[in-house]
């Protein structure tokens, strides 16, 4: 098990007013992403806890790609990972950002 936190500047706060959303499931090759609007508006924080050790560089690349695509300022993404592939991680992060935008809580 490995845990680390990545913080990126994000120019725009994520749209919508939802406070939190959760997508995915912790299973082999899958992950859950909890998105909460608890970061500073100009930052995106991603906390990762993963069953697969030694993939820090790949995580960094995927998160950078995600921040550039989704502009998720003000959001803290917390990940419990069961060893998902990078494309699955990116997909779930995009889903989480979308779910948070659409959330009515």
């Amino acid at each position: 098990m490995e845990s680390f936190t990545l913080t990126h500047p994000a120019a725009t706060p994520l749209a919508g007013a939802g406070r939190q959303a959760i997508v995915g499931v912790v299973a082999s090759g899958n992950l859950e992403v909890l998105a909460e609007r608890t970061a500073q508006p100009d930052l995106c924080v991603v906390e990762i806890s993963t069953a697969a050790d030694g993939f820090g560089e790949i995580w960094r690349a995927v998160i950078l790609d995600f921040v550039e695509r989704a502009a998720p300022g003000g959001v803290r993404f917390s990940i419990n990972d069961g060893g998902a592939r990078p494309d699955t991680v990116l997909l779930r992060l995009m889903q989480a950002a979308r779910a948070l935008q659409d959330a009515t809580n």
């Binding site: 098990m1 939190q20 959760i22 912790v26 859950e32 909460e36 806890s49 419990n80 990972d81």
Partner: peptide, 19 residues
């Protein structure tokens, strides 16, 4: 899930937790 009431036991088995 935002309360993060997770298993206190899975980590010693190197298993991922869920929120």
């Amino acid at each position: 899930p935002e309360q993060r009431a997770m298993s206190p036991h899975l980590r010693q088995f190197d298993l991922p937790r869920a929120f």
